[in-house]
């Protein structure tokens, strides 16, 4: 019954999109999106985030949402509605996250969720852009004098059981013919305490979790991250419902705007000054002085300026959440492409 209703609604939307496309003389990308329309009508973006995880989405002592994922939500709201605080955050658990997105309860899901084949195909979700690349990361005591993973031969690492973390280490040992020992724990708190007490030389988990573990140590400065990761790449990013390309595009380009701001060196502090009649064509495009980039996305042309002014560029947000002012995790893979990282974006012109 509801399937029929949904299908009818979809066909209607499709027909409307086609009509709109045929009607407009210029071959513009149709910015006609049901989600975008709903967000504008509501005057509020409903963003699904984690119920609480250091770095990505957490609440400070005043109860305000902070984090890398949260900043993306605020940037979308800023682009569409002109204010970064017009967001309703819904904390979602890992079991319900995709169904609340599919049911339409949230407009976008940005919840440290990994991009995967099944989620893209079988679950019918779009994967607009990756805001955090990670992989199994190691944190070791500085006193160990180890700079790279293979040098951990003979060391003991605290690991959580029942995950692929352990098998990844075993595979790595076999492939490199070394012996990294593991000490297994059921719960993260126990493993943290054991590492802090010196029962093991290091701790391993995905990048974000290791960074969180480090900040619980008595002396975080005594610990360092190794640059290598094992067990493959884990790209984490936003999810949108399939069938609303215009909305997916908007979510994607909001992330790219934060990257572009970093490439152009625009920060929160100087965004307004840099926007005052710049000569550089890249800056003119970014600030909406040339071209109709905002219109093509279904928002106004100052959208990117607002994001840079209110949220800041990607590097600033990373610095505040995962970087030096946050959990102390080096940029690594999340550096810009020209700094040896994976964060890259299409050109704007």
């Amino acid at each position: 019954m509801t399937g029929i209703v949904k299908r009818a609604a979809m066909i209607g939307a499709l027909a409307a999109a086609l009509l709109g496309f045929a009607g407009s003389a210029r071959a513009q990308a149709p910015a006609d999106s049901p989600t975008l329309k709903a967000v504008k009508g509501r005057g509020q973006l409903v963003c699904g985030v984690d119920t609480g995880i250091p770095g990505y989405a957490y609440q400070d002592a005043g109860g305000t949402w902070q984090g890398l994922d949260v900043a993306w939500c605020r940037a979308i709201a800023d682009a569409v509605l002109g204010a970064p605080d017009k967001v309703k955050f819904i904390g979602t658990t890992s079991k319900e996250r995709f169904s609340v997105l599919k049911s339409g309860e949230i407009d976008v899901l940005i919840r440290d969720s990994e991009y995967s084949f099944i989620r893209n195909t079988q679950l019918g979700l779009d994967e607009p852009a990756v805001n955090f690349y990670t992989g199994q990361t190691f944190m070791v005591r500085k006193s160990l004098n180890v700079a790279h993973l293979p040098e951990l031969n003979g060391a003991t690492i605290c690991v959580l059981t029942g995950t692929t973390l352990e098998t990844n280490i075993a595979d790595y040992n076999r492939a490199h013919n070394i012996k990294i020992n593991t000490l297994l724990f059921e719960r993260p708190e126990e493993a943290f305490a054991a590492a802090d007490a010196g029962r093991c030389d290091g701790y391993t988990d995905d990048g974000g979790s290791v960074a969180a573990a480090r900040s619980t140590m008595k002396r975080p400065g005594d610990w360092m991250f190794l640059p290598e990761t094992i067990g493959g790449l884990e790209p984490l990013g936003a999810f949108t419902r399939q069938g609303d390309e215009a909305w997916t595009r908007l979510v994607k380009w909001v992330h790219f705007a934060m990257l572009e701001a970093e490439i152009l060196g625009i920060t929160r502090a100087d965004a307004m000054d840099r926007a005052k009649d710049p000569k550089d064509p890249d800056l003119r495009r970014f600030f909406g002085l040339d071209g109709d980039f905002g219109k093509l996305l279904g928002v106004d042309n100052q959208w990117a300026l607002r994001i840079a002014r209110d949220i800041g560029n990607y590097g600033e947000v990373y610095e505040a959440t995962f970087g030096g002012s946050g959990l102390g995790l080096p940029r690594g893979m999340n550096n810009l492409f020209d700094h040896g990282g994976l964060q890259a974006l299409p050109t704007w012109h």
């Binding site: 002592a61 969180a212 959440t321």
Partner: peptide, 25 residues
Amino acid sequence: SIVGLADLLGVVSQALKDPAWLGFP
């Protein structure tokens, strides 16, 4: 709290995730 409503226990577990206050479960 498992359906995303922040009751007392939910708020406490959220508070445990604040990087400025990690380590007080």
